[in-house]
Design a protein around this nucleic acid. Structure first.
Lengths: 199, 199
DNA sequence: TACCTTTGCTAACATCGTTAGGTAAATCTT
DNA sequence: AAGATTTACCTAACGATGTTAGCAAAGGTA
């Protein structure tokens, strides 16, 4: 009988609905004002129902951050299929990362704890922060003919990631006084160019 | 009569005491668990007294972040007096910035909104985020003989800041899998070297 | 002594995350 | 179909949060 299946389906529906509604609220009002009660209102159920599907609020944020990592990963995989040349691919990854951050600032903030009580850092990483692995692959592809040591290569990977993340953070948190997004992107392009030239 | 002076002095004392106690609590238990009531307990006054000295909690955090900026600024000024050569000075600034971040992670987190509801971003900047100006001076000193445009120089400044801030953020939020602090510092040194070579 | 300003407190409000405990409906068992 | 049981869901509370209204006492002024 399909009753059990229906129930499982309903339960899953509720779960994804909670996540969707939470994300919706976040996009409308920001992370700071997301509350369990608002989610409950939005899904038209009472508060405790949410705790049947998630252990606590942090678990919801965690799941949403995973969604963010998954989305980013999908985009990076697309780059990988599109660009065989490691240098082109690395440039594409940088562009993708940058665009992801500014098209989905809520995700980016949650994933890397920008301006909010961090939810994920130190937990979601190993399995889901695939950005490092993606750029690692590209960078290794570029330097494989050099005599660079393993350590040096590892350093380069973090250096590359750092420029991107640092610049995104500074811009996103309005620590920069450049408010022209074209300009900001040029800073990134410049840095990426300099970085690649120096590999 | 000195009564008024004494009162002003007492009022100021209370204010600085609140800030000191708040910072103390933060160092002991982290930003997340700082509350007005805990501050009130610690200064042995009732809660509303705090609101005689600060408009709200954010104002306290803001003031503390200013302390952070001031402390960092003092250290950078010391570099400036110590190193006349712009390249040496830039290296010193990088080292100072890095050390400041990891010796005072609470300040750094507050100043740049790492893993907490941001307090300052977009407000304290113009007057107090002097780091950009300090490295700007050093970088301009290095490139002044070149034919670099003003825009290019500006880009370099943000690029430099970005590597530092990005790497610090990644390490501080445990997004990196390098947990050897010597190693992390080497990544920074590498990046700084590459950056300077490319100026 | 009568008045007023300052100083500090108690007690409350609204909101938050979280949970205990109950009710009614849906399902399973016989 | 009727009774037993599990499930789905809700109301109401607990404790903690930031914040504020309103009062009492203390101290200076007239």
């Amino acid at each position: 009988m399909g009753i059990l299946e229906r129930k499982i389906r309903q339960k899953e529906n509720m779960r994804t609905n909670i996540l969707a509604v939470a994300m919706q609220l976040v996009k409308e009002e920001g992370w700071q004002s997301l509350s369990i009660r608002k989610i409950a209102d939005a899904i038209e159920y009472s508060v405790p129902v949410i705790y049947d599907h998630f252990e606590n609020k942090e678990a919801i944020l965690f799941e949403l951050s995973m969604d963010g990592f998954r989305l980013l990963d999908r985009l990076l995989e697309k780059d990988k299929r599109k660009y065989a040349d490691p240098e082109e691919r690395l440039r594409a990854h940088a562009e993708t990362y940058w665009n992801f951050a500014f098209k989905n600032p809520e995700y980016y903030q949650l994933m890397y704890g920008l301006g909010m009580p961090c939810s994920s850092p130190g937990k979601a990483k190993p399995e889901f922060n695939s950005f490092r692995e993606h750029i690692a692959e590209a960078i290794e592809g570029i330097v494989k003919d050099n005599k660079s040591s393993e350590d040096e290569t590892c350093f380069k990977i973090y250096a590359f990631w750092s420029v991107l993340h640092g610049l995104i953070s500074i811009v996103m948190m309005r620590c920069s006084d450049i408010d022209d997004s074209q300009m900001n992107k040029k800073v990134m392009d410049d840095s990426v160019n300099a970085f690649i030239k120096n590999l």
